[in-house]
Simulated scan of single mutants.
Amino acid sequence: MMSACRYYPLLYRLLVWSVPKSSVQKQQKHFLMAKQKVQNRLGTKQDRPDFLSHLKKAREGLSDTEIESTAGIIIIAGSNSLTTTLAGTTNYLLRFPQTLEMLSREVRSAFRTEADINLTTLGQLPYLSAVIEEGAVHHLTCTTWDATHCTKRRK
C-alpha cells in the first residue's frame, strides 16, 4: 500500500505521518535483525540449502541492501501470517462447535483412508474451502509496507 501511495505525494505523506512511531521502531528493529542475519549468513563458507543460498549464488546481480530487504520480507511472510491464520481459524472452530461438527462430517465422509487425503481431494471439499477462506479473511496478516521510506521520516 505504501508503495502504491508513493505515486500520490500528498496521500503518501499523510499515510507516512499517520504510522505510529512504535510501528516504525518495530520495523526498524526487524530490518536491523534481518540485516545482521543476512550478513552473518553471507559471511559463512558453509553451503546449506536455504533461500539465502540462492540469493548468495546470484549475489553479483544484487546489492547487499536488496538481499537484506528481500530477507526481511521473507522472514515476516514465513513466520507470522500462516500461524496467525491457522490459530484464528482454530479458535473460531472451537467457539462454534456446530461449524466444527459440519466440517468434521464433511472431511470424514469424503475419505475412506488417510492415504486418500491430498491437496487435490481436499480442494474439492466446499465446506472446508469456505472455512479456510473465512479464516484467511478474518485473520489475514498484512505485513508488507515500504519501510525504507517510513523510517526516514522518524529519524
Rank of each mutant, 00 (worst) to 15 (best):
R105Q: 09
H138S: 02
V38M: 04
D64I: 05
T121F: 07
R108Y: 15
R6C: 11
L122F: 08
V107K: 02
S23D: 11
V38E: 01
R108D: 13
W145S: 03
L62K: 04
K26Q: 08
D47W: 13
K155Q: 15
T141H: 07
I67E: 13
T89F: 12
T121L: 08
L125D: 07
F111M: 04
G135E: 10
R59E: 15
H138F: 09
L122R: 01
T113C: 14
I132D: 01
I74T: 06
T70R: 01
R48A: 10
E133I: 01
T151F: 09
K26M: 10
C150Q: 14
A58T: 12
V16E: 13
T141I: 12
T84S: 14
A136V: 04
S3C: 07
A34N: 01
S3K: 08
T85E: 09
G123C: 06
H139P: 00
T144P: 00
C142R: 05
P126A: 04
L55W: 14
I67Q: 08
Q98L: 08
Y8T: 08
A34G: 02
I117Q: 03
T84R: 03
P97D: 13
S23R: 03
S18E: 06
E101P: 01
R6Y: 15
K155H: 14
A147C: 10
K155G: 15
L86I: 08
A110T: 02
H30C: 00
T90R: 03
K152G: 03
E60T: 13
G43S: 10
D146H: 06
P97Q: 14
A77V: 11
L62T: 00
H30M: 11
T148N: 11
T151I: 11
P20Y: 10
L82E: 00
S18I: 04
G72A: 13
E134I: 03
S63E: 15
Q46W: 05
K21L: 05
L94Q: 05
E114D: 14
A110S: 15
P97L: 07
P97I: 02
L52P: 03
S109V: 00
L82V: 04
T113I: 10
A147P: 00
Y127A: 01
Q28G: 03
N91I: 01
C142V: 12
T143G: 09
P9D: 05
Q36A: 15
Q124F: 06
F96H: 09
E68W: 12
Y92D: 05
E68H: 10
A115D: 14
T65C: 05
T89V: 05
K152V: 11
I73Y: 09
L32E: 13
L52Q: 08
I67M: 14
K45M: 09
G78K: 05
L52E: 09
V137M: 07
S81A: 11
T113M: 13
L128K: 03
M33K: 04
R48C: 06
L10G: 03
H138V: 02
T84E: 05
T44R: 07
R95S: 11
L42S: 03
A71T: 06
R6S: 10
L15E: 04
I67D: 10
S69H: 13
I74V: 13
F111L: 02
T85L: 07
T89A: 07
P20A: 07
R112G: 03
